[in-house]
Design a binder for these strands. Structure first.
Lengths: 231, 231
DNA sequence: TTTAAATGGTGTTAAAATAACAATAAGTCT
DNA sequence: AGACTTATTGTTATTTTAACACCATTTAAA
């Protein structure tokens, strides 16, 4: 094999850390591998990138095949390319994470076939390949991102309570002692990015909380004026 | 060609945005391409990744071949993989940036052969491939990084003046109106990361400034205690 | 040797942001 | 009606930030 040919004895894949927020906890969607290598192990959903496919497109495809969802928040994080990371050859992988609303998730043929399951972030065991390392990187990126831009709302239903929003931040940032409720509300509300709805929570056995909506248009206006989201 | 084979008709490269700081300005080291495609155009130094080479190793190799430097600050930024980004085939590239002290740079055989030159960041023209886009990403990353960690010192000689440090930050962050001298010095010195040397600047036609050194050990101690660098 | 030219070095204060803290309100359930 | 559970709200001390101007020290030129 010539040297030039050997450069082309390689492939690249995308792997996707799909985050969701449910039951007050941050979760990720894992699949159980049905074939070697790592048969039976939990792994991040991923696939080889098609020859005529852009990287972001491949990541979005993997996500859609598994969840049925399109137009989801998706961000490239890092590329993992250790020589021995894949037992069957030189395969580097471009890692992405995506943020979905768990309520939108429906079990697709692909997710059924691959027995996809939500796992609490704190209860993820030993994953296939270098996927634990990939998860760490994505989690670290999400932690930074969620404080600098309003991506947190991607994980919540369109209408949410301030307490739910606070729990979301706590579950991602994991501060040693929870956020102060009064300070959190003051800060969030002072940004004027939330619309207070007339509706309230229903079906709870206590005082129902007001529901809010994130106003993306306003956010974009403010950004154009120099506003920087920061929590 | 089978479908599996076609996945392996692809290659990956690394490209490196090499930053330097000289004459009060942020610069990058570009090479002039000697062969098609984009013959004669300025480009980021890069190369295909060898089959048995890790990605970080490849990036460090490209840097060393061009500059003779090892053990340099190097960070992966983003992978660019648009289907048509390389005219000769499917080649995705993993972009890195590195921070070097311009005074350490010596012209190597490789840099001579490729006519490498420092370019002011504000005077970079139209580059080969998607390298302008890559540069933008790396610059953006550097801007963030330099405020969150003390990587700025990687661009300065071991002994430097506070004014040089301020100019470094100004040339990277490009604030609309320069940083306030008194506030900048107060902030930097209050971190207790700089050692004031007995030496002063020499050979200047005005009051010479005191020289300082960055104390990396102290920084690491402080980080272990929870300190977060922030400018 | 005096003076001009150039950059180095320093402190105060008002305003804003942050952090710490606890009592009442509004629902459901029994 | 009373118990239970979570929602909602404001004040204050402390810290951080931002704005601002003058004297000091050296070299070079007159």
């Amino acid at each position: 094999m010539s040297e030039v040919e050997s450069f082309f004895k390689s492939a690249f894949s995308v792997d996707n850390v799909i985050f969701g927020f449910d039951g007050g906890e941050l979760k990720i969607l894992l699949i159980q591998r049905g074939a070697a290598p790592f048969k039976g192990k939990w792994a991040l959903p991923g696939d080889l990138v098609y020859p005529n496919e852009d990287l972001d497109t491949a990541a979005a495809r993997v996500l859609e095949q598994l969840t049925g969802l399109r137009n989801v928040y998706l961000e490239q994080v890092k590329t993992f390319g250790a020589v021995d990371r894949h037992p069957l050859g030189r395969v580097i992988t471009i890692a992405y994470y995506s943020l979905i609303k768990v309520t939108d998730y429906t079990v697709t043929a692909a997710s059924f076939a691959q027995s996809a399951k939500w796992h609490s972030i704190s209860q993820v065991g030993d994953l296939a390949f270098d996927h634990n390392e990939i998860l760490e990187s994505c989690l670290k990126r999400l932690k930074r991102k969620v404080r600098m831009t309003p991506v947190g709302f991607e994980l919540l239903p369109p209408k949410f309570t301030l307490t739910a929003l606070q729990h979301l931040y706590e579950s991602i940032l994991r501060p040693t002692k929870g956020l102060d409720k009064r300070n959190f509300r003051k800060k969030i509300l002072s940004m004027n990015l939330l619309v207070e709805l007339k509706e309230s929570q229903a079906g709870v056995a206590h005082r129902p909380a007001k529901l809010y909506q994130f106003d993306r248009e306003k956010y974009e206006e403010f950004v154009a004026e120099g506003f920087v989201f920061d929590i």
